[in-house]
Design a protein around this nucleic acid. Sequence first.
RNA 1: GGCCCCAUCGUCUAGCCCGGUCCAGGACGCAAGGUUCUCAUCCUUGAAACCGGGGUUCGAAUCCCCGUGGGGUCACCA
Length: 595
Amino acid sequence: MATAPHVITRFAPSPTGHLHIGGARTALFCWAYARRTGGTFLIRIEDTDQARSSEASAHGILKDLAWLGILWDEGPELPLVAPVSDRCGPTGSPAQVFSKTSPGAPLLAQHGSETRATGTIGGNPRGVGSFYQSQRLDVYNAVITDMLARGLAYADFSPPEKLAEARKAAEAAKQTFRYHPPAAEIAPLDEQQRRIAAGEKHVIRFRANEEPVRVTDEVLGEVAFGAGEVDDFVLRKADGYPTYHFGVVVDDEKMGVTHVLRGQEHLMNTPRHVALQQALGYRTPVYAHMPLIFNDQGAKMSKRERDQTARKAVKDAKLAGPPAGASIDAAAFTAWLGDTKRQLETGELESLAAAMNLALPEVSVDDFRKAGYLPEVICNFIALLGWNPGENREKFGMEFLAANFDLARIGKTSARFDRKKLLSFNADAIGAMQDTDLAARLLEWCAEYAPAEGERLRALGAERLALLARAVKPRARTLKEALRPAAFALVSDEELAFDPAAADKVLKANAGAGRALLLDLAKVLAALEPFEPPAINAAIEAFAAGRSLKTGDVAQPLRVAVTGSTVSPGLGETLAVLGKASTMKRIERCAAACG
RNA sequence: GGCCCCAUCGUCUAGCCCGGUCCAGGACGCAAGGUUCUCAUCCUUGAAACCGGGGUUCGAAUCCCCGUGGGGUCACCA
């Protein structure tokens, strides 16, 4: 092991949107591999598309990664408030980053035993940064200058329209278009330099050779690409920014990246990168192309899925214009509806879904977070989409990945993203949580996505909140779903509404038999001490038994009285969460309402 | 269309590299029972797969070839 080379992996997102679940898996594997080998995991922001990149997106991606517990050793710095021990919590608890809604305000971090008060993720210990490609232009330009001088690259002054035409013509002739002009068509170096100096618009192209390229991939094995597959692709765009291909190759070299793990959609880029590396005399890193993550349609999972879902719902509802409450421009809506390729802005799409009471399929980490999934479950689940430890084991945490992840067990076949199974995993994880942990998670989630409910929960106090968490545990598959069985505790005694149908059925029927029973039971409960779940349950059962009734006969009137509905968590926990005073008040109110 | 990748229950997969222990194991989902004060949880049981065809071999889910199917990719996006 001492002689093993130091592994450096990297995740290199382009900040043009939210962190996609597939990207999260790539990052997770890069992280896990670095952890496993005692290497370094770095993050580089590939913001070379001036039109589409944004700092907000970059920050969002970093924040999502941190939330997942995928922390980087080098890269952009992010302040962190973390119940984190080393790189992953002892129970796989995630990092806490600054709240999105209240930046600068650290979230509470009451779980995880080895809490670090504050800290920073990222940094530049080896001095290989910046980790934003837009800030590395002189690095790329130096390489370009060198390549130009050595004839490895050339300036191309032809307008993009001309190229597009040629491409179209080739397509019409059913030919594969490859740009590789004969040497005679390329201007001599001094002319190139003169025209560049004169400020003429141009791109810099790689002068590809005609060699076949052989790539050794850790998951796919040997992959051969025929001669001439690599064409004279662009290295530097007309705006002076590097293309993806160029930036990746240069930065991976300069940053010492040894292992490139990425999605299989990049496989066809690899010969380009290898050809470039060879021309420049760079190392070729170890490649591992991981299988794709599919949606239900068996195609690569993408954000478009959300638009498709919404579009279908709109069509099914036969809506001609934006529904009431949706903040979308009518013209934009119509254009979107008629063009299946078109995508709505995230905000527009979400307001539309909200207005239609429609659940959009989650595709970005943010979506899953909002839906109430646990970060450690997401990591567990996406790890399974392409990797498994064997031996029928499929539940594991970050520590396990950090200790056991390997390239050899990455599968070759694309996996469908099965939300049902994710949900089941999440439900299991919630079910296995300590009451107080779940309570804390609930509070965190509410702070972000349901502040009003969060306040109500907090007002319960630690003890009752923990009790509520226990009650809700087997009834919630996500943190969001926990709000439903907790609903009775989220309204005041005065606000509680009684479901009329339920009241008719269990309280008013048979000349108010249920109501009468309720009043008698109330006397027992009023005298009950301690007012705790086991005692409450015992009292209810004894009361029913004493009258030769089934427990359900007395439970249901009580349930409707204190929760307003025939469906709720167990009565012992429900009443204990409410407390005796509140319970009595609700019973009185109910009796009055049904009198 | 060119190039490239892939192929085990409906889905995720173990097994494949190092052929026999596989009438193929696990999980989600599904179905049927059971426990329970509602809802849920939980427990038990069940149905459910080696894409097709050729080889190689005493023997193939496992090795080879062809076919078929699916996917990816063909930008001054990454």
